[in-house]
Each structure stands twice: as structure tokens, then as C-alpha cells.
């Protein structure tokens, strides 16, 4: 029994100037209906000013099993953060 409508992922821009953020998913027959359902499901309390919907099947995700090789290399590169560098307190505006 799988006559489900297409699954869409929903992204909402909460305020002008902010990025769209993933809020959840829903089923819809087409993209237009997905937008309408997203409005009813995810913006009942003025949570958004703009909605994106994307077919879930179109999302390519990284594999959790590869998380280590993908993200571990960044761990020992603390010199990418400003706090890595010791600057005397007397030096201002830096």
C-alpha cells in the first residue's frame, strides 16, 4: 500500500533578511499544493515570510558513515579561528 503523494521538504524564511531554514516535510500532489500545505502546517503563527519546497528525493545527503573522513580533517586546524592568535592587549582594533 503505497499510493502516498510525493514527499516534500519544507524550508521557511522566518524574517526578511534571514536564510530559509529546514522545518519539516509533508506530502502533496504537486509543488503548488506543497506550498499551500506548508503554509497551513508550518506558518500558523507568522513563522515565515517565504517558503521553499523541494522534493525529498532530489536531496543528496552525505553518508553518516563517512562523517569522520568528511569532517574530522577540520578538527586540528584551529589556526582557522581568530582566537588561535595571541595579540598583546595593548594592541587595539584587531
Amino acid at each position: 500500500m503505497n499510493e502516498d503523494w510525493v514527499l516534500y521538504e519544507v524550508f521557511i524564511r522566518s524574517r526578511s533578511g534571514l536564510e530559509h531554514k529546514h522545518v519539516g516535510s509533508l506530502h502533496a500532489a504537486d509543488a503548488r499544493m506543497a506550498i499551500e500545505h506548508a503554509r497551513d502546517t508550518y506558518t500558523r503563527r507568522q513563522e515565515g515570510v517565504s517558503i521553499w519546497v523541494v522534493r525529498s528525493s532530489d536531496i543528496v545527503a552525505s553518508d553518516p558513515a563517512e562523517a569522520e573522513e568528511l569532517f574530522e580533517p577540520a578538527r586540528d586546524k584551529v589556526y582557522r579561528h581568530p582566537t588561535f592568535y595571541a595579540i598583546p592587549e595593548d594592541v587595539k582594533n584587531i
Binding site: M1, N2, D4, G24, S25, L26, D40, T41, R44
Partner: peptide, 29 residues
Amino acid sequence: AKVQDEGGHGMYLYSAAETLGVSRGQLIE
């Protein structure tokens, strides 16, 4: 508004259940 919220809560939860590999159709059935 409250009853509509309950419907919305059902939708959030069905979606969460579906991430575990069960379909919406199966759940409703």
C-alpha cells in the same frame, strides 16, 4: 485554531514516523 493545531501536530508526527521507514499510507491504514 486549537483543532487546526492538533491536525498540524498529527502531520509533524506522521512525518517523523515516516523517517523510520513506514509510509503515510501504512500509518493511516
